[in-house]
Amino acid sequence: EETYEVDGEEQLKKVEKMLRDRNLDVEVEIHNGKFVIRAK
């Protein structure tokens, strides 16, 4: 499992696309105004 923490939606979209391109399962949560992306 990998976890990424990003600020802002633009970064979120980039990271999310990169992970989905690797066929990973992606979950996004918001913690303290930051996006936390978990990939399995």
Rank of each mutant, 00 (worst) to 15 (best):
E1H: 11
E1S: 11
E1Q: 11
E1R: 09
E1T: 12
E1N: 10
E2Y: 13
E2N: 07
E2H: 11
E2M: 13
E2I: 13
E2P: 07
E2L: 13
E2Q: 07
E2K: 07
E2G: 08
E2C: 12
E2V: 12
E2D: 07
T3G: 05
T3K: 10
T3C: 09
T3F: 14
T3L: 13
T3H: 09
T3Q: 09
T3N: 06
Y4F: 09
Y4R: 02
Y4L: 04
Y4Q: 02
Y4D: 02
Y4E: 02
Y4S: 01
Y4P: 01
E5Q: 08
E5P: 03
E5I: 15
E5A: 06
E5G: 02
E5M: 10
E5L: 13
E5Y: 15
E5N: 07
V6P: 02
V6R: 02
V6A: 08
V6G: 03
V6H: 02
V6M: 04
V6Y: 03
V6Q: 02
D7C: 15
D7R: 09
D7P: 04
D7F: 14
D7G: 05
D7K: 06
D7H: 11
D7Y: 14
D7L: 11
G8P: 03
G8L: 11
G8S: 15
G8K: 05
G8N: 15
G8M: 05
G8Q: 06
G8E: 08
G8I: 06
G8F: 10
G8D: 15
G8W: 09
G8H: 08
E9L: 14
E9T: 09
E9P: 11
E9S: 04
E9M: 13
E9Y: 14
E9H: 10
E9K: 08
E9I: 14
E9W: 15
E10M: 08
E10Y: 06
E10I: 06
E10T: 07
E10H: 06
E10N: 04
E10S: 06
E10R: 04
E10Q: 06
E10A: 08
E10F: 05
Q11T: 09
Q11D: 13
Q11N: 10
Q11L: 13
Q11A: 12
Q11E: 15
Q11V: 09
Q11H: 06
Q11Y: 07
L12S: 06
L12A: 14
L12W: 07
L12M: 13
L12Q: 02
L12T: 01
L12F: 09
L12R: 10
L12Y: 08
L12C: 15
L12I: 04
K13I: 10
K13E: 09
K13Y: 11
K13M: 09
K13R: 14
K13Q: 11
K13V: 08
K13G: 07
K13T: 06
K13W: 11
K14P: 01
K14Q: 12
K14S: 07
K14G: 03
K14L: 13
K14I: 14
K14H: 09
K14A: 14
K14T: 10
K14W: 12
V15L: 14
V15N: 00
V15A: 03
V15R: 01
V15I: 14
V15F: 09
V15M: 11
V15Q: 01
V15G: 00
V15K: 01
E16D: 03
E16Y: 15
E16Q: 12
E16R: 08
E16L: 15
E16W: 14
E16C: 14
E16M: 15
E16S: 11
E16V: 15
E16N: 03
K17E: 10
K17N: 07
K17V: 08
K17G: 05
K17A: 12
K17I: 08
K17M: 10
K17W: 02
K17D: 09
K17F: 03
M18Q: 09
M18S: 06
M18R: 03
M18E: 09
M18I: 09
M18V: 04
M18D: 05
M18N: 04
M18Y: 12
M18P: 03
M18T: 06
L19S: 00
L19T: 00
L19C: 05
L19M: 04
L19P: 00
L19N: 01
R20P: 03
R20D: 04
R20W: 08
R20Y: 08
R20G: 06
R20A: 09
R20V: 05
R20E: 05
R20S: 10
R20M: 10
D21P: 00
D21Q: 05
D21T: 01
D21W: 04
D21Y: 04
D21H: 05
D21S: 09
R22C: 15
R22Y: 09
R22L: 12
R22D: 05
R22N: 08
R22F: 07
R22H: 09
R22A: 09
R22Q: 10
N23W: 11
N23C: 13
N23H: 12
N23V: 02
N23M: 07
N23Q: 09
N23G: 15
N23K: 10
N23D: 12
N23P: 00
L24Q: 07
L24H: 05
L24G: 01
L24T: 02
L24E: 04
L24M: 14
L24P: 04
L24V: 06
L24F: 14
L24D: 02
D25M: 14
D25W: 15
D25S: 11
D25Q: 12
D25F: 13
D25A: 11
D25T: 14
V26Y: 15
V26N: 01
V26E: 00
V26T: 04
V26L: 11
V26I: 13
V26Q: 01
V26M: 10
V26K: 00
V26C: 11
E27V: 15
E27I: 15
E27P: 00
E27Q: 13
E27W: 15
E27H: 13
E27T: 15
E27M: 13
V28Q: 00
V28W: 07
V28R: 00
V28K: 00
V28M: 03
V28E: 00
V28T: 03
V28C: 13
V28S: 01
V28L: 04
V28N: 00
E29G: 05
E29W: 14
E29S: 14
E29K: 08
E29I: 13
E29P: 00
E29V: 12
E29L: 12
E29H: 12
E29T: 14
E29A: 10
I30K: 09
I30R: 10
I30P: 04
I30G: 05
I30E: 11
H31F: 11
H31R: 14
H31L: 13
H31M: 12
H31D: 05
H31N: 08
H31E: 08
H31Q: 11
H31T: 09
N32W: 02
N32I: 03
N32S: 03
N32Y: 05
N32G: 10
N32D: 12
N32M: 06
N32T: 02
N32L: 04
N32E: 10
N32R: 04
N32P: 01
G33V: 00
G33C: 14
G33R: 00
G33A: 01
G33E: 04
G33Y: 02
G33D: 06
G33T: 02
G33I: 00
K34A: 04
K34I: 10
K34P: 00
K34H: 11
K34Y: 10
K34N: 03
K34D: 01
K34T: 05
K34M: 10
K34E: 01
F35K: 02
F35P: 01
F35W: 12
F35C: 10
F35E: 02
F35R: 01
F35G: 01
F35M: 05
V36A: 00
V36M: 05
V36D: 02
V36N: 01
V36T: 06
V36I: 14
V36Q: 04
I37H: 00
I37F: 01
I37V: 12
I37N: 00
I37M: 00
I37E: 03
I37Q: 01
I37L: 05
R38A: 04
R38F: 06
R38C: 12
R38M: 05
R38P: 03
R38V: 08
R38W: 05
A39Y: 09
A39I: 15
A39C: 14
A39Q: 03
A39N: 03
A39V: 15
A39P: 05
A39G: 08
K40I: 12
K40Y: 12
K40D: 04
K40R: 12
K40T: 13
K40Q: 08
K40L: 10
K40E: 03
K40P: 05
K40W: 14
K40M: 06
K40C: 12
K40V: 13
